[in-house]
Write a protein that binds this DNA or RNA. Structure first.
Length: 651
DNA sequence: GCCGTTTTCGGCCCGACTGTTTTCAGTCG
């Protein structure tokens, strides 16, 4: 459901400029786009606001400085109008005439956008003609049959809206990447095994490894004469909760977790993904858990084009089509065609005259570009990099040699030191960093941190184990760190003398509530103060977000990373974690490239609380890939013998 | 509202599906 929470124009709490932060500006611009749609504005004007919001969020420089320099309009997508708006907001603390727009559009209309089949046009029509301002009013109007009499409406639309309202209540929100991939892999395998399907592959945000997945897209290559047979077979796959629609080229479904039973017993799931998922995520699925899925059926010779198209992202595709147009070509899900001589041929008919492509590499070659890995297709600079042959060589899961943030029974983990070490060795790792919680941490009134007097005991155990491996000639070691709480005032838990004994200190915020009650500027200052402590090594789950659960606390992460970069250039090691738990995936991948540009090393940490949790590193690697990171950018790609030294040097 | 070797106006990515119509508008991805 589109949450209505937060749909008010922000008021500044500050007494001097800048009155608003970059994140506040970005969110207002995005909301204005939506509000304008509901107000019936010119769709291109709507897109201008959406584009401005997007381009600002990938703009890495300090926005306040840009405003002061007067160079706002040099940012692509920001012209005179929006630049004036941003200038006014930051300098004066006012939003021009946007107040009236926020006032004008009833909040219930925003919620209605979440109803499948309802868009801004119909919502506006209902509002203008019938005075409908909320989902509740919409439901009763539909039940009374009041909607069917409107122009271009009818009984069927009315029913669809009622179903849509129910659906919205039942199947709300997106799925975490791990859950989405479980469904996606299972569904892909089932479709691949249908006779008549020549190839089938998962596309969409799952293939791009987004941290959360709205619905699954699967492309299947099927000859024309097999379409009917294959469609019937797909519709009879067990695990389908509902069929939403089925045409010649597209099938829309809702899947439920019963799809897994046979898929798992046949071990048909991709081994790499299954290993990463460890089966844990599946066991946790509720029986009423569902996910939307679309299957596209296309002739084999256009499969690559359709894969590229439905892998997205939408923004990447727009840029690709623009690139094609620049070369006098048209690109769509069926092929790439010269614009002249295309005539009236559309869709598949036109594909006969298109440029052939056996795989995606050839599509990019036709456009004189290097193939872009799916994870990078977000229009975050990959188009330019692919055109100039400057794409990074992305990190691979096998390049990770250990991890630095994991727990044992000494705090809230469920496995002992030696059990965790064995599991790490089984993964082929050369080291395991243990970072149990510090003393202060208690969750639900129960203290789970390691008290001061037990820190030394843990250190002794680790030393004994390391000595044993060393005499045996085993290339494995445990690094004795701590996940040390960053207190609300920016101080670190434990006395200095204890912190200095650890090989590394992962500083993490756990008392999220007090950080959420402060503003971005204050939080940023306090967090930077904590990072500057000489014993501080790694920033753990920087914003505290839980995917699908809660937003992180307000923070200017660019400013934090800039400061960490300065400290690194002074020779002090300050690394930033990508917490690899699929619940967190924090640092956000969108910030990885910036961290790299500032010279901040990244550590991919599973934050494992049990043996299988170590495998979550796989998800962290996916995020690092989305963030353009290479092997040398990631600290825990260093071999065991080197990483100890690196941490000593960095103090 | 933004943008511009076609720069101050007239474009702005493209197609399938659905339900409403009898040629098309709205929605979705």
């Amino acid at each position: 459901m589109v949450s209505v929470h937060g749909w008010v124009i922000p008021r500044s709490r500050r007494s001097e400029p800048p009155f608003f932060t970059k994140n506040q500006i970005i969110s207002v611009l995005e909301q204005v786009g939506t509000l304008l749609q509901l107000d019936g504005a010119n769709p291109f004007r709507v897109r201008a606001y959406e584009n401005a919001s997007r381009s600002l969020s990938s703009h890495e420089d300090n926005l306040w400085e840009t405003v002061q320099e007067g160079t706002l309009i040099e940012i692509k997508g920001i012209g005179k109008g929006i630049a004036g708006l941003i200038d006014e907001a930051m300098n004066e603390g006012t939003w021009g005439d946007l107040d009236s727009l926020y006032q004008k559009v009833p909040k219930g209309l925003i919620e209605m956008l979440g109803v499948p089949g309802l868009g801004p046009k119909r919502i506006k029509q209902f509002h203008d003609e019938l005075g409908i301002e909320s989902i509740a009013e919409l439901r009763s109007a539909a039940e009374e049959g009041a909607l069917a009499n409107l122009p271009r409406m009818g009984k069927k639309m009315e029913e669809r809206i009622l179903e849509g309202i129910d659906l919205l209540a039942r199947f709300t929100g997106r799925r975490r990447l791990d859950i989405g991939l479980l469904y996606g892999e299972a569904f892909e395998r089932r479709i691949s095994s249908i006779s008549g399907v020549q190839r089938a592959q998962l596309a969409g945000s799952a293939r791009r490894r987004k941290e959360s997945i709205g619905d699954l897209d699967i492309v299947a290559a099927v000859e024309n004469e097999d379409i009917e047979k294959v469609t019937d077979a797909i519709l009879s796959i067990p695990g389908i909760a509902e069929i939403k629609g089925a045409g010649d080229s597209k099938i829309s479904l809702i899947l439920e977790s019963t799809i897994f039973e046979e898929a798992f017993s046949n071990s048909t799931i991709d081994e790499g993904v299954l290993a990463a998922l460890g089966g844990e995520a599946w066991e946790e699925l509720e029986s009423n858990s569902t996910i939307d899925a679309q299957v596209r059926l296309v002739p084999p010779h256009v499969f690559a084009y359709t894969m590229a198209y439905f892998t997205g992202s939408k923004e990447h595709n727009v840029r690709m089509r623009q690139r094609a147009l620049d070369m006098g070509l048209r690109l769509n899900e069926f092929g790439l065609f010269p614009l002249d001589g295309l005539g009236d041929a559309k869709g598949l008919e036109a594909a006969a005259n298109g440029m052939p492509a056996m795989d995606e590499t050839e599509i990019y070659e036709h456009l004189q570009m290097k193939w872009v890995p799916p994870e990078m297709r977000e229009d975050m600079g990959e188009i330019e990099a692919a055109l100039s042959d400057n794409l990074p060589s992305l990190i691979e899961p096998y390049q990770v040699k250990g991890a630095l943030h994991n727990h044992t029974t000494a705090s809230d983990g469920s496995a002992s030191l030696s059990e965790m070490a064995e599991a790490a060795m089984a993964l082929g790792w050369e080291y395991l960093g243990i970072a149990d919680h510090s003393e202060v941490l208690n969750i639900g009134g129960r203290s789970i941190g390691v008290p001061q007097h037990l820190v030394k005991k843990q250190g002794n155990e680790i030393r004994e184990m390391n000595d044993k491996w060393s005499t045996e000639g085993t290339d494995f070691r445990i690094l004795h760190g701590s996940e040390c709480d960053i207190l609300a005032d920016g101080k670190l838990d434990y006395p200095d003398s204890i912190r200095r004994e650890f090989s590394h200190v992962v500083g993490s915020v756990h008392a999220i509530r007090s950080w959420r009650n402060r503003d971005e500027i204050e939080n940023t200052e306090i967090l930077i103060k904590a990072i500057e402590d000489p014993t501080f090594t790694i920033l753990g789950h920087p914003t505290g977000r839980i995917i699908g659960g809660r937003e992180g606390f307000p923070l200017d992460m660019h400013a934090v990373l800039r400061r960490m970069g300065e400290l690194n250039s002074d020779g002090v090691l300050k690394a930033c974690e990508i917490n690899a738990s699929p619940y967190r995936l924090d640092l956000d991948w969108r910030l990885c490239k910036f961290a790299k540009s500032q010279g901040v090393p990244i550590v991919i940490n599973p934050d494992a609380h049990f043996k299988k949790g170590l495998k979550d590193v796989w998800f962290g690697v996916q995020m690092a890939r989305k963030g353009w990171l290479e092997e040398q950018d990631v600290l825990n790609c260093l071999p065991g013998s080197v990483i100890e030294e690196r941490m000593m040097e960095g103090k």
